[in-house]
Amino acid sequence: MTGGAPGAGHGAAPAAASYSAPALEKGLDVLELLAGSAGPLTQSGIAAAQGRSVGQLFRVLLTLERRGYAVRTEEGGYVLSERLFDLAHRQAPRRGLLAAAAGPMRRLAEEIGQSCNLGVREGDVVRVLAQAESPSPFGFSVRVGAAFPLVDTVTGAVLRAFTSDASGQELDEIRRSGRGERSDSLHAGVTDVVVPVLGPDGAAVAALTVPYVSTSYSGVGIDAVRSAVERAAEEIGTALGRSAP
């Protein structure tokens, strides 16, 4: 196949750096820094972290705040708003997934008396897209929009098992059983039960997780929870065009 980039002439191609947009680069750097921060960052803190001066970032921060991507706290620090998350949800695939999952997730939470959440893979993290709250007075929930390391969670393991050729004892077992399950290392009494939501091609488009809380108030045992999560995940997959296995 022959051809080239539109407008390309003869001779060596211009260096990639010649196409850079410094102001845009600064803005993206700030967004990525704020996304990875555990708390608000001041102008001076952002400048120090990026090796830039406060003057270089003043207009960038002002623009991000004006456009609604960053919020300034009363103490003068900056945090990300939910605007990037909202933009991501405007994508047709995400809208279709959320629409397909809303009903099954609500019915699942009501059936088992526990909360459930829907996560997708974004690079090296699992992003929580939706949650159905527990109808019971107790339950374990996570914030919609929260991100967790892909390699440190059973939800991430399920997504990896059904979207890549990666191997290993846990991933192989997940593929054989069709689900993942692990006691939460940070929260005693919570067991994450995770089932992939499979698309038409058999790959996981998302993972449905129930952080099962075992207490004397739990009206549904974990065996019934496993079956209920599998049915809900299959229902979501069917709504997305997945044929019955």
Rank of each mutant, 00 (worst) to 15 (best):
residue 1 M to G: 15
residue 2 T to S: 14
residue 4 G to F: 12
residue 5 A to K: 10
residue 7 G to R: 08
residue 8 A to E: 14
residue 9 G to M: 10
residue 9 G to A: 14
residue 10 H to L: 15
residue 11 G to N: 10
residue 16 A to L: 15
residue 19 Y to Q: 12
residue 20 S to D: 14
residue 20 S to G: 14
residue 20 S to K: 14
residue 25 E to A: 15
residue 25 E to S: 13
residue 26 K to F: 07
residue 27 G to D: 09
residue 27 G to N: 10
residue 28 L to Y: 06
residue 29 D to E: 15
residue 31 L to P: 06
residue 32 E to H: 10
residue 34 L to W: 05
residue 36 G to A: 02
residue 38 A to M: 10
residue 38 A to S: 11
residue 46 I to H: 00
residue 47 A to S: 04
residue 47 A to D: 04
residue 51 G to E: 02
residue 54 V to M: 04
residue 57 L to I: 01
residue 57 L to C: 02
residue 59 R to G: 07
residue 60 V to A: 01
residue 62 L to W: 08
residue 68 G to V: 03
residue 75 E to V: 07
residue 75 E to N: 13
residue 85 F to S: 07
residue 85 F to M: 04
residue 86 D to S: 12
residue 87 L to G: 00
residue 90 R to S: 12
residue 91 Q to P: 11
residue 93 P to L: 00
residue 99 A to P: 04
residue 102 A to Y: 08
residue 103 G to V: 03
residue 103 G to A: 04
residue 105 M to T: 07
residue 106 R to Y: 01
residue 108 L to K: 04
residue 110 E to G: 08
residue 119 G to N: 05
residue 124 D to G: 06
residue 124 D to F: 02
residue 128 V to W: 03
residue 130 A to Q: 08
residue 132 A to N: 03
residue 132 A to L: 03
residue 134 S to Q: 08
residue 142 V to H: 09
residue 147 A to Q: 11
residue 149 P to C: 01
residue 150 L to E: 00
residue 153 T to I: 02
residue 157 A to G: 01
residue 161 A to F: 05
residue 164 S to I: 08
residue 165 D to F: 11
residue 165 D to W: 10
residue 166 A to W: 02
residue 175 R to T: 09
residue 177 S to K: 15
residue 179 R to V: 11
residue 181 E to W: 09
residue 184 D to Y: 05
residue 186 L to T: 15
residue 187 H to S: 15
residue 188 A to D: 13
residue 189 G to N: 09
residue 191 T to M: 07
residue 194 V to W: 03
residue 196 P to E: 02
residue 196 P to G: 00
residue 197 V to K: 00
residue 200 P to N: 02
residue 202 G to D: 04
residue 206 A to V: 05
residue 206 A to H: 06
residue 206 A to T: 00
residue 211 P to N: 07
residue 212 Y to Q: 09
residue 214 S to P: 06
residue 219 G to A: 14
residue 219 G to V: 12
residue 228 A to H: 05
residue 229 V to T: 09
residue 229 V to E: 11
residue 237 G to E: 04
residue 237 G to T: 06
residue 240 L to I: 08
